[in-house]
Amino acid sequence: MGKVKIMLNYLWGIMIVLGITVGVLRGEIGEVSQATINSSKEAVALCITMLGIMAMWTGIMQVAKKSGLIASLTKALRPFLRLLYPDIPKDHVVNEYIASNMIANILGLGWAATPMGLMAMKELKKLNHDSEVASCDMCTLLIINISSLQLIPVNVIAYRSQYGSVNPAEILGAGLVATICSTFVGFVFSVIARKLSYRNGHR
């Protein structure tokens, strides 16, 4: 976490210093000055569009949660998780966390997914005897998480709408195919890597 913060620190600083330097050298400093003011205004305009779309989505998701839909989706995910995590005891609470994390990611609720994912990691750590070396289960969890299987990228739709797209949702189908492919690759990689680690005596 600390390292990431420091990295963003430098990234942000360098972007601004570099941008202004290049601007001076190329004689575009007037544009740079305007961009500074306009960009901050734009961020707020964007967030107003996002308020609408995001609130609509979290509202609908609350309905899905309270009606028991998310719980039943989580249950439906179980057999699939057995393939990815063959070693986790069937009734272990970590199954619940992993499934909830995955469902939240699929539904585009990234902020709700992270707490679930962290709880899953803590449980996996116990199963891994507090080792400093990641278990296969941890690797799988992260790889599948990063492969970003996602039904609706709510943010992307909001951005497209704010910048005047005629049909902001038109990219959903293409995005879904792309993300299914990347998750499939992550799935196959995780299963193979696990087999290879077992052969080398790793768990």
């Binding site: 976490m1 990431v4 992270t114 994912g117 962290l118 990691m121 803590k122 996996l124 750590k125 891994n128 507090d130 080792s131 400093e132 070396v133 990641a134 941890m138 690797c139 969890l141 992260l142 790889i143 998480n145 990063i146 492969s147 992550g186 990689f189 995780s190 890597a193 680690s197 790793h202």
Partner: peptide, 18 residues
């Protein structure tokens, strides 16, 4: 964020997979 929460230092093949 995730590996920090689990106190893991060696992440093995995770990065490659990601």
């Amino acid at each position: 964020v995730y590996f920090m929460a689990a106190g893991v230092k060696k992440t093995r093949y995770t990065l490659l997979g990601c």
